[in-house]
């Protein structure tokens, strides 16, 4: 970056991001001009009614989807200008994603699911296995590493998905309702885990949640309404 701005560019800057599904008469805008900055090391909760565009925005942030209009800067790099492979590399090295619907590989053990991102990173088998076991231990699933998604409860699958997202030690973790399928005790454990990762490892966390209790773990809450940021409140965390 040229010039000498007093502060470095934020980790993430969305400007006027719009997402329109469909064409012509049938088209509908899921996002209508989102402006959002997220700094390095933040813990952001995204809230809002169902259908307000939270998942759509997260997918764009996670480089899984492309906006119809608007710009996305990641560490000052314009994501729209990146090629497919560069975007894949961005996901591989910097972004972790936890899906609302898990998206684990079927008939594949928890351990192998968690190992998968490390295979693409080219880690040798021994290190890969050790890191995957550590991540599974972090989500409390050490005893379940041989189980396939079909043999795990929804909450357990969600934790495998979280382990898979954090095993690569990404810069940002995008989590779309990571506690949506968990009971309160488990949800708290997951939130403690994310908080620890955020505090001690500087992991930036952006998390969608419907539960105000869970949003309390975040330092900042962004409210989506009808495809727009309706409120952005800071300093509630505790």
């Amino acid at each position: 970056m040229s010039g000498a701005p007093p502060s470095p560019p934020p980790l993430i800057r969305l400007t006027g991001v719009t997402k329109i599904y469909g064409h012509g008469q049938a088209s509908m805008a899921a996002l209508r001009g989102i402006d959002l900055d997220i700094g390095e090391g933040e813990f952001v909760a995204v809230m809002g009614p169902s259908g307000s565009g939270k998942s759509t925005c997260m997918n764009i942030l996670g480089c899984l989807d492309t906006p119809t209009r608007g710009s996305y800067l990641f560490r000052g790099v314009s994501v729209e200008d990146l090629g497919r492979n560069q975007r894949a590399m961005l996901r591989r090295h910097y972004l972790g994603f936890v899906f609302q619907g898990f998206n684990l590989l079927n008939r594949t053990s928890a351990l192998e699911n968690v190992e998968l991102p490390l295979i693409y990173r080219g880690l040798p088998a021994g290190q890969r296995r050790a890191a995957a076991r550590k991540a599974l231990a972090a989500v409390g699933l050490s005893d379940w590493e041989g189980h396939t998604p079909g043999e795990l409860s929804g909450g357990q699958q969600q934790r495998v998905a979280i382990a898979r997202a954090i095993v690569t030690e990404p810069a940002v973790l995008f989590a779309d309702e990571p506690t949506g399928n968990l009971d309160t005790a488990r949800s708290r454990e997951i939130m403690e885990l994310l908080t620890t990762l955020n505090r001690e490892h500087g992991l930036t966390v952006v998390m969608v949640t419907h539960e105000p209790d869970m949003a309390l773990y975040a330092k900042r809450t962004v409210h989506f309404v009808d495809g727009k940021v309706a409120a952005d409140t800071n300093g509630e965390g505790g």
Partner: peptide
């Protein structure tokens, strides 16, 4: 899934 976790085409 593979693409999402960073696999190249």
């Amino acid at each position: 899934i593979r693409l999402a976790i960073g696999a190249l085409e």
